[in-house]
Simulated assay, not measured.
Amino acid sequence: MSSDFVAGYVSGAVGILIGNPLDLVKVRLQARRGDESLRASSQGHGYFETKSSLIKGAAAPILGYGALNALLFVAYNRSLKFLDPSVINPTNLDANVSLMNIWLAGAAGGMASWVISSPTELVKCRTQLSRNQNISSWTVFRDILRVQGVRGLYFGGLITSIRDSVGYGFYFWSYELCKRSLSSLDDSSQQEALKVLLCGGVAGIITWASVFPLDVVKTRLQAQPFIAHTVSEVPDFQRRLLPPTSSSRPRILNSLEIARDAYRSEGFSVFFRGLGICSVRAFIVNAAQWAVYEWLMKEFNRASTAPHVSM
C-alpha cells in the first residue's frame, strides 16, 4: 500500500473526528428554511439533541472520508506527475511547478474521489439532519440500499462531482500558493510546522468559499426524502424543503429546481448560509489534516531512505 494512500487515509479520519460537530451545524443551517429554527427541543443541548449528537453522522465519513482522502491524494500526486514529469516529491514542490497544473491535478483528484464522496456525503447528510437518536449512518445506508439499491447511494452525484472537482482544484492550488508566499520564513522545524498549519487552514477556507453555493444546493438535494416514503413518514424539517404534489408523496426536485426555489423564497444570501461556521471548521480541520499528512509522508520517506542493517 502506497505511503500517500496511508497518510491520506489517516489525515482524513483525523479531520472528521475534529470537525464533525461544526459540520453537523453547517448541514442543518444549509438545509433549514428561513422561518425554521435550528435549535433542538428544550430538552436538548442547544443545537444538538443530546451530547452524543456531537458525533452524529461521523461513522460514514470516518470510514468513507478516510478512503476518499487517500484516493484524493493518490490521484492528485499521480496526476501532477503526469502533467509535470519533473515533479519528484509532490509534498515539496519546486517553485517552477505551474500553479495551473497543480489546480488541474487537484481537480482530477476531486473527480476521482467522487466515487467515494457521493455516497458518503449522502449518508452523512441524511444522518445529521435526522433528530431521531435511533437513526445511525448504518441505518441510513441500509435503508438506501433496500429502497433504491446501489444507484440510490449516488443520488446527487453530479453536483457532488462538480463541487469536488472545482473545490479540490482550489484546495491544492491555494495550499501551494500560500506555502510559496511564506517561503521567506526560516526552515526551522517550528516555523515549518506553523507554515503547514496556516496554509492548510487557509486552503480549507478558500476551498469552501469557492464551492459553497454548490454545497448548499447539494445538501438540500440530498436532504430530500426517498420517493418510496410517504409524506407522513418524513420529518417536518425535511418535508418543508419540498412542495408536496397531489399524491401522498413529495416530488423530488433536481439541482436547478432546488437552486431556483431557494433563491425565490429566501434570496441570494441563502447560498452562503452557514459559510461562517464552515470557514471556522475548514481552517481547523484542514490545518490538522495537512499537518498529519505532511508529518506521515516525512516519516515514510525517512523510513524508506534509512539504511537497512542485515543480520
Rank of each mutant, 00 (worst) to 15 (best):
K56Q: 09
G34W: 02
R163Y: 07
R131F: 02
F226S: 15
I252E: 08
S37N: 11
W208M: 10
V147M: 15
L296G: 11
L22Q: 10
G204R: 12
L185W: 14
L99F: 01
S183G: 00
L93K: 02
C178D: 04
V270N: 02
S210N: 06
V27P: 01
D84A: 03
L253H: 01
W138Y: 10
Q190H: 05
Q43C: 11
L63F: 11
G204W: 01
K26S: 08
R33K: 14
I159L: 12
N96K: 15
F212C: 10
M100I: 15
T127D: 11
L194V: 10
R239H: 04
K56L: 08
V10K: 08
I16T: 09
K51I: 09
V292Y: 04
T160K: 05
L185Q: 14
L194K: 14
L63Q: 12
N254Q: 09
V211F: 06
R146P: 06
I277D: 13
Q133M: 11
L68M: 12
G156Y: 04
P213E: 11
A105Y: 04
M100R: 10
L38F: 01
G110E: 03
V10W: 00
G64T: 04
I206K: 02
D35S: 14
L221Y: 06
P61S: 08
G156N: 07
G46Q: 11
Y263A: 12
T139Q: 06
P250S: 00
V234A: 00
T207R: 08
F268K: 15
F170L: 14
A209T: 08
I205T: 00
M111S: 05
I144Y: 02
R32V: 02
R33L: 13
G169Y: 07
S136L: 09
E176K: 04
A209L: 12
V10D: 06
R281V: 14
H308T: 14
I252K: 06
V216H: 15
E233T: 01
W103N: 07
P85S: 03
Q190F: 03
L17N: 04
P85N: 01
E121A: 03
V211M: 11
K298L: 08
Y293F: 15
N77L: 01
P119Y: 06
L158D: 12
T219H: 03
P90M: 04
V211E: 10
R142D: 15
L29P: 12
D143G: 12
I252T: 06
F226A: 15
V74Y: 00
R78D: 13
G12N: 02
G156W: 03
S118A: 15
S117G: 03
L71S: 13
F226C: 14
R39S: 05
G167L: 02
N92P: 01
E36W: 00
G169A: 09
S165R: 07
N101E: 03
R126T: 05
T230M: 12
S3T: 13
N77M: 04
D164W: 02
F271Q: 11
V217L: 07
W290C: 13
V202G: 01
I277E: 14
